[in-house]
Write a protein that binds this DNA or RNA. Structure first.
Lengths: 142, 142
DNA sequence: CGAGTATTATTTGAGTTACCAGATTATTGT
DNA sequence: ACAATAATCTGGTAACTCAAATAATACTCG
């Protein structure tokens, strides 16, 4: 019993949505003195509980050396810090610092503010429905 | 009468979802010999009816000179072509060529295939609901 | 136990991509 | 004529990414 595949139309809408959201984050990150990848990563640090360098690496599906540079930038700004893993000393856990939490909140608020028109086509019920469904999506964490 | 604001939790889930989708596109584009931006733009050429350079420019919210290069790359590969506007000779309409349509289909199929697990938390009804809601989002087209 | 292997993260260096600002051309509108 | 718009060209910068080499730690199995 397989599920009905989603329509192509859905994916076009999804990509347009993705593109629009990406531009939002790019714009916000510039104002905050962050690069777009740094801003996205900052959000992920909280979304994934206690991420290690390698788990972020898998999320981005990129070379490990890439993550080092991104976290370096965030750490220099005091937004995150590298913490030792309790049992495995090879692993470094990325912790969100208070200043980082503040920036995170700013980003989210900016997204909320600038996404107003995006959800204009949805009524209150649909909006709640959408929020509920998005949170049910199974984002690969590792 | 303002709408209830969406929760922060929702935005974290949304960003995680977008990040995952973006990585899918990046991975696919590499396999197809395209840059990520080229792949995204290729999908947009069909989604927005008869886009001009400037309408794509507004969608990306970026400098016009940027779009020129992206379309150049797609045109060199024979995936799209620049067509004259029927009345305004300044405007160039981007047309999707057969080869481009083929690539588009490949990208969509790849997205469908690799997104299977993503929607595992949703049952058939919720899946249809989600697809419906995404298509109701008001993506700025111009 | 210990040699070999695997994992985690970093450093370095190089290449590509993405983006923007300014000047330019062609066309349109007033 | 004059200004506005659409697209391009040029040059430059910053961001992003990977590949290879390195170091430290953990695992495994004879």
């Amino acid at each position: 019993m397989t599920k009905q595949p989603l329509s192509e139309q859905f994916y076009f809408a999804l990509v347009a949505f993705l593109l629009q959201a990406k531009q939002q984050v790019v714009a916000i990150s510039g104002e905050l003195g962050l690069t777009s990848v740094q801003a996205l990563t900052l959000l992920m640090v909280d979304s994934i509980t206690a991420p290690s360098m390698s788990s972020l690496c898998k999320l981005y599906d990129c070379d490990a050396s890439n993550i080092t540079g991104i976290i370096d930038g965030l750490e220099q700004k005091g937004l995150v810090s590298r913490q030792p893993h309790p049992t495995d000393r090879r692993i470094k856990i990325i912790r969100l610092e208070p200043a980082g939490k503040q920036i995170q909140t700013n980003i989210i608020r900016h997204l909320v503010k600038n996404s107003d028109h995006l959800f204009d086509g949805l009524n209150q019920t649909e909006l709640a429905q959408f929020a509920n469904l998005v949170q049910k999506l199974q984002i690969p964490k590792k």
